[in-house]
Design a protein around this nucleic acid. Structure first.
Length: 546
RNA sequence: GGCGUGUUCGUCCAGUGGUGAGGACACCGGAAUCUCAAUCCGGAAACACGGGUUCGAUCCCCGUACGCGCUACCA
């Protein structure tokens, strides 16, 4: 055991005692049962959809229990840090309306960046060292690699424990010698775990769990030769969650295996243990099997993917909530968003993220929005993703609103579901705007291979006699009336019976007008489109076929 | 390898010691139609496998397989 003086000399002289931090971060005054939750994203890349998923659960549980939810940036791995990641977190949470009560400069339990909490960690590392619950380890990378290799060769569990923990029981003299030589060291936790020992604990989602006790002398404070002396996740978790007075740790399932370590750390530090809830990870279909959504390979793993595509936030939230608590997926959206999430109802198997399902939900959601709302949301999205669309929509607001009443709107029983995300707007509705529309000529392949001369004659005839009629049936008769004259069968059956005698049927003829008006072989109701466009624009577009 | 954890239609979820195992999305077929969307009707589709316990197991127990995770001075 090291002398207290030797231990203290390793730390800044003015380093506070634990009481100082305990006083600075007093227990929160909260109602019984209030849950204080936190999300600890690591700024090593964009926010993962799984992070949003857990954050949503954190937010919900704390809100409904009268607690608090805080965001703590876990930037202890400075080498892997990615610039701009923190800003992206902010945008992502804002977009989905999942904002923490405390983060950055907001809150009494900060700083909320681990890289700014060095002194806090050092206080508790020193405390552990003073009590001989931790020790200095001078093992080199090579030594560590050698230990691992030998363990693997003899099929022993890998790790720094028992007789492999070469610095665990070194004499004070040996330690001092290394210190005098200026060798770098890490601080390791002196694990109290015994071989064969088991620990049980309760998980709020999975119930009683059991695990081998931890025997590894895990690193608690990273190398002494870096500028900032930062803790590992395990140690930061214990110190931060205790001091920030978090009482419910919701995190990914990959942490289950380290709970025994965390429990030992909490006990050694004299902290009250916290409640745990381990969430099943979001998965991705991979051929026949499935795997965890990967930041690397899967674009949909990034929250930015949903923002860029313009998925409406409530639809994504509804989808995510449905994955967490299956029953909520059966409820109408408003109700589902208002219903508190329950940890006990969370699934234990990792669900696949199903973009098709998300799109269906989004389509339903958008279908029930008013034209004004859709337009506002599209414009908001376009402001950062499609500048020309913003200009057009601003200039043509009335047209846009009229276009958004075509086969949708309050008086339509079964509104179209052709908008799932805001990036769908341009391909689906762009043709309404002259600025975004390109005229079609009579040889265009979208016309279905009808002889250009026939196309031209038909279009000319249609345009010359065109009337902007209000009645749909009458309007369509302007096409029907031209059928015989231009060699089209009155119905598909006739055409099928005698295909050589016609250029097509009413179907093919109507397509000519459709393609001329919309530039597409698929479109909403032709009459509605024509009325929205107005007579002048209809004639302009149809005459381009001539 | 060790440890942990999980496994109901393709997908997301319900469900029960005795059920025709239910819904939603997707898929297929049909109706309607000037195309698409929407809509309506219909269809196919699952309790991973093997042992127990039991009068009876999808459900309880034990194994096996497979998936996923941990086994870092990454979180």
């Amino acid at each position: 055991m090291l002398d207290r003086a030797v231990v203290d000399a390793l730390f800044p002289s003015g380093l506070p005692e634990p009481e100082h931090w305990e006083k600075q971060y007093p227990p929160r005054q909260l109602p019984d049962g209030a849950k204080v939750t936190r999300l600890g994203p690591s700024p090593t890349g964009f926010l993962h959809i799984g992070g949003l998923y857990v954050g949503m659960i954190d937010r919900d549980i704390s809100t409904h229990s009268g607690g608090a939810y805080l965001l703590r940036v876990e930037d202890t791995d400075q080498a892997r840090e990615v610039e701009g990641a923190v800003e992206q977190f902010g945008r992502a949470f804002a977009y989905f309306g999942i904002q923490p009560d405390e983060e950055g400069e907001r809150g009494d339990y900060g700083p909320y960046f681990q890289s700014q909490r060095e002194a806090v960690y050092l206080t508790y590392v020193r405390e552990l060292l003073r009590q001989d619950k931790a020790y200095l380890c001078f093992a080199t990378k090579d030594e560590l690699a050698d230990i691992t290799a030998r363990q693997q060769a003899t099929k022993l569990p890998t790790g720094y424990y028992g007789r492999w923990a070469i610095w665990r029981d070194k004499s004070a003299e040996e330690v001092q010698a290394k210190l005098d030589a200026g060798e770098p060291y890490v601080v390791r936790f002196r694990s109290p775990g015994k071989a064969g020992e088991r620990v049980g604990f309760v998980d709020a989602i999975r119930g009683q769990l059991e695990h081998e006790a931890n025997r590894n002398d895990v690193v608690v404070l990273k190398a002494s030769d870096s500028e900032l002396r930062l803790p590992t996740y395990h140690f930061a978790h214990a110190v931060d969650d205790h001091l920030m007075r978090v009482n419910l740790v919701i995190r990914g399932e990959e942490w289950i295996s380290s709970v025994p370590t965390h429990l030992q750390l909490f006990d050694a530090l004299g902290f009250e243990r916290v409640e745990y809830a381990h969430i099943a990870p979001l998965m991705k279909q991979q051929g026949g099997s499935r795997r965890k959504l990967s930041k690397r390979k899967d674009p949909e793993a990034s929250v930015d993917f949903y923002i860029e595509a313009g998925f409406p936030a409530p639809a994504v939230q509804y989808y995510l909530r449905g994955l967490a608590n299956g029953r909520l997926a059966e409820l109408p959206l408003d109700e589902a968003l208002a219903t508190p999430l329950s940890l006990g109802d969370c699934g234990v198997a990792g669900p696949l993220v199903d973009l098709v399902k998300l799109e269906d939900i989004a389509a339903d959601y958008v279908a029930n929005l008013s034209g004004e709302d859709i337009l506002a949301l599209v414009q908001e999205w376009a402001a950062t993703h499609d500048a020309t669309l913003v200009d057009v929509l601003t200039a043509e607001r009335d047209l846009a609103l009229r276009a958004l009443t075509v086969e949708r709107g309050p008086e339509v029983a079964n509104p179209r579901k052709d908008l799932r995300k805001w990036s769908d707007f341009r391909p689906a509705y762009g043709f309404f705007f002259a600025q975004l529309f390109e005229l079609v000529d009579n040889g265009d392949e979208r016309l279905g291979g009808v002889d250009p001369k026939v196309v031209s004659a038909f279009a000319a005839d249609f345009a010359d006699n065109y009337a902007d009629l209000e009645d749909g049936g009458e309007w369509f008769n302007q096409i029907r009336g031209l059928l015989e004259k231009h060699g089209f069968a009155p119905n598909p059956k006739e055409y099928k019976k005698n295909p050589d005698a016609f250029h097509g049927s009413v179907r093919e003829a109507a397509q000519l007008i459709r393609v001329a008006l919309t530039g597409s072989t698929k479109s909403p109701d032709l009459h509605a489109v024509a009325r929205t466009l107005g007579q002048d624009e209809v004639l302009r577009r149809v005459r381009s076929l001539v």
